[in-house]
């Protein structure tokens, strides 16, 4: 883990320390240390079941951790001073700084694209309906879907749905965006349009953690690539080191399968 770029503490947007999580008797996270600084893009690779998606869900405060800390801007989130998990109502407020994009989009099927994006503004930030729709339109423009604004999710392709989902997460202006295998549920020819939007975000300075199987995207866009295996982080390095000079046998084996 010595490869991790050392950022001064105050610049760390999101950080997890000694994170543990088990489902039933199955230990999915076994003490994970991970951090991301403002403006960084980190790609997280690893076989399925290695714990990478679980880390993301814990970071997004969607599930409680068993042990360990999650820090946003250096402050512990998800728990009170005594270390007990906060009630859902309080967690909801803390989640607003963290954007999440899901593998299966999870767009609201009963709302048009623009209302999917606007809902968080009206229902969470109490923005006036008219202003919310205006800002939602701007967001859809950023992901290249202005002319699809009034279409419902069932009328959009998978790639378009995922771009709406990205706009929906972006509209709350989060400090960090978490992507949970955002292109894994897409037809191969639709992957590119989603990765393009994400690359644009990265170039615009967004802090991003991307759990993905897209090795080329990780190499081109990420500042750092992380390999998860069996609940622990195996290797963490800038893409050129990670892909061309991996330090660990496990990384070499993983790369031989995906290259």
């Amino acid at each position: 883990m010595s490869h991790a770029s050392v950022a001064p503490v105050q610049d760390l947007t999101l950080q997890v320390k000694d994170l543990h999580k088990a489902y039933g008797g199955n230990e999915v996270l076994k003490g994970v240390e991970f951090q991301i600084a403002k403006g960084q893009v980190k790609a997280v690779l690893g076989p399925s079941g290695s714990g990478k998606s679980t880390m993301l869900r814990l970071m997004a405060l969607l599930e409680p951790s068993d042990r360990g800390d999650i820090l946003l801007h250096g402050e512990r989130i998800g728990v009170n001073d005594g270390g007990r998990h906060l009630p859902e109502r309080t967690l909801a407020v803390q989640r607003r700084d963290i954007g999440m994009v899901f593998q299966k989009f999870n767009l609201f099927p009963h709302l048009s694209a623009v209302r999917n994006v606007a809902l968080a503004l009206t229902a969470v930030q109490q923005v006036k309906r008219h202003t919310a729709l205006e800002r939602a339109h701007e967001m859809l423009e950023r992901v290249g879907l202005s002319e699809r604004a009034d279409h419902f999710p069932s009328e959009l392709s998978g790639g378009q749905q995922q771009r709406v989902a990205i706009a929906r997460a972006l509209v709350l202006d989060p400090d960090v965006m978490l992507f949970d295998e955002p292109t894994s549920a897409l037809d191969p020819e639709l992957v590119g349009e989603v990765l393009d939007v994400m690359e644009g975000l990265a170039r615009g300075g967004m802090t991003m953690i991307v759990v993905t199987h897209e090795v080329r995207f990780a190499r081109r866009v990420a500042d750092e690539v992380t390999l998860f295996d069996n609940g622990v982080i195996v290797e963490q390095a800038p893409p050129e080191d990670f892909f061309d000079r991996p330090q660990h046998e496990r990384t070499r084996r993983f790369l031989s399968h995906v290259h």
Binding site: A60, L62, R89, R95, G99, N106, F108, A120, A123
Partner: peptide, 10 residues
Amino acid sequence: LAGRALGMKP
């Protein structure tokens, strides 16, 4: 889950 991730209360 998506609603919660957006910061909506229960």
